[in-house]
C-alpha cells in the first residue's frame, strides 16, 4: 500500500485532531443539551434555577475578582523577575531553578503549603509573634475572615502560577536581540526608555500569550480555593463541582461549565483584538 505523500501530514494529524475535537465537541454539545432542555424540549428552566441561586452571581463575582487582582499582579511580578533574571550574575541559574519549582506543584498542594504558612499556628504567625511584631495571630481562615481567605488565595496563586508567566516572558526577553537594546543605548536611551520603548513593545506577543493563558486558567480556578476556603469564597468551577457531586444537578453544573467556556472565549477574543502587535501582522 502506498500513501500519496501529500495526504501524509493530514493522516498523521488526524487521530490527534479527531480525539481533541471529540473531547471538546461532545461535552460542549452535551452541556448545551443539559442546560437548555427539559424532557427533550427546549427550556430555560435550568437556566432560571441556576441564576436565581445567590451562589451563581457570587461565584461569578469572585472568579472575575480573583482574576482581576491575580493576573495583572502576576504579569508585573513576572516581568520584573524576568528582567532581573535576564542579567548575568552569580547564582543566576540556581535562582531560575528555584523560581520554576511551582510549575510542577499542583493547586491542591499549593493550597496546603500556604495553609502551613498562614494557619493560626502557621509559620508566618508564629514568626511574627516571636519577633514581637504581633501579639495575636492573624486569622486567615474561616467564614468570618472571608477577606483574609481571599488574600490567602491571592498569595497562594501568586506563589504557584507566576512561574508560568515568568518562563514565557523570560523566553520572550531572551529572543530580543541584544543589538536592539545596544542600538537604543548608542542613540542615547536610558534604562527606562529602553524598557518602555524597546523591550516592552517587543515583549508584547509574549505578554499577550501569558495573559491569555493565565486569564483562562483563572476562569477555571478550583483546587486552591477549595482547599483554602471551601465555599466561603464561591467560584465558578467550585460551584459546578458542588452542583455535580453534592446536589447531582447535572443541568446547573453544565451551566457553570458553559459560563466558564463562554468567559474564556470572550476574554481570549478581547485580548487578541486589543493586544495585537501590528508589526507582526504586516505583509511582506
Amino acid at each position: 500500500m502506498k500513501i500519496k505523500s501529500e495526504f501524509l501530514p493530514y493522516l498523521l494529524i488526524l487521530p490527534a485532531f479527531a480525539y481533541l475535537m471529540f473531547f471538546v465537541g461532545y461535552p460542549l454539545a452535551q452541556a448545551l443539551y443539559l442546560a437548555f432542555t427539559q424532557n427533550g424540549a427546549f427550556s430555560l428552566a435550568t437556566v432560571r434555577r441556576a441564576i436565581s441561586d445567590y451562589y451563581f452571581w457570587t461565584a461569578l463575582k469572585y472568579t472575575l475578582g480573583l482574576a482581576a487582582i491575580i493576573v495583572p499582579t502576576q504579569v508585573i511580578l513576572a516581568l520584573v523577575l524576568a528582567l532581573v533574571m535576564n542579567k548575568s550574575f552569580k547564582g543566576r541559574d540556581l535562582s531560575i531553578y528555584a523560581l520554576v519549582i511551582p510549575l510542577t506543584i499542583s493547586d491542591v498542594a499549593a493550597g496546603l503549603i500556604w495553609y502551613s504558612m498562614l494557619s493560626p499556628y502557621g509559620f508566618l504567625n508564629k514568626l511574627l509573634m516571636n519577633i514581637g511584631i504581633l501579639d495575636n495571630p492573624i486569622y486567615f481562615f474561616g467564614y468570618q475572615f472571608r477577606h483574609m481567605e481571599f488574600l490567602a488565595i491571592v498569595l497562594a496563586e501568586l506563589w504557584r502560577a507566576t512561574a508560568i508567566v515568568f518562563v514565557i516572558i523570560l523566553a520572550g526577553l531572551q529572543m530580543i536581540s541584544n543589538e536592539y537594546l545596544e542600538a537604543a543605548e548608542v542613540f542615547g536611551a536610558t534604562y527606562w526608555i529602553k524598557l518602555r520603548r524597546i523591550v516592552i513593545p517587543l515583549l508584547k506577543p509574549s505578554i499577550q500569550s501569558a495573559l491569555i493563558i493565565r486569564t483562562l486558567f483563572a476562569m477555571q480556578v478550583f483546587g486552591i480555593v477549595w482547599i483554602l476556603a471551601g465555599r466561603d469564597i464561591p467560584i465558578l468551577a467550585g460551584e459546578g463541582f458542588y452542583q455535580l457531586t453534592e446536589i447531582k444537578d447535572y443541568g446547573v453544573a453544565s451551566i457553570y461549565a458553559l459560563v466558564i467556556a463562554g468567559l474564556s472565549i470572550l476574554l481570549g477574543a478581547l485580548y487578541i483584538k486589543f493586544m495585537k502587535a501590528e508589526y507582526l501582522e504586516v505583509k511582506r
Partner: peptide, 14 residues
C-alpha cells in the same frame, strides 16, 4: 555617537 550595526538592529516594532 552613532552606530550602524552588522545586523542593522532596525527595531521591528517601529
Amino acid at each position: 555617537i552613532s552606530m550602524v550595526f552588522q545586523s542593522y538592529a532596525v527595531w521591528p516594532h517601529m
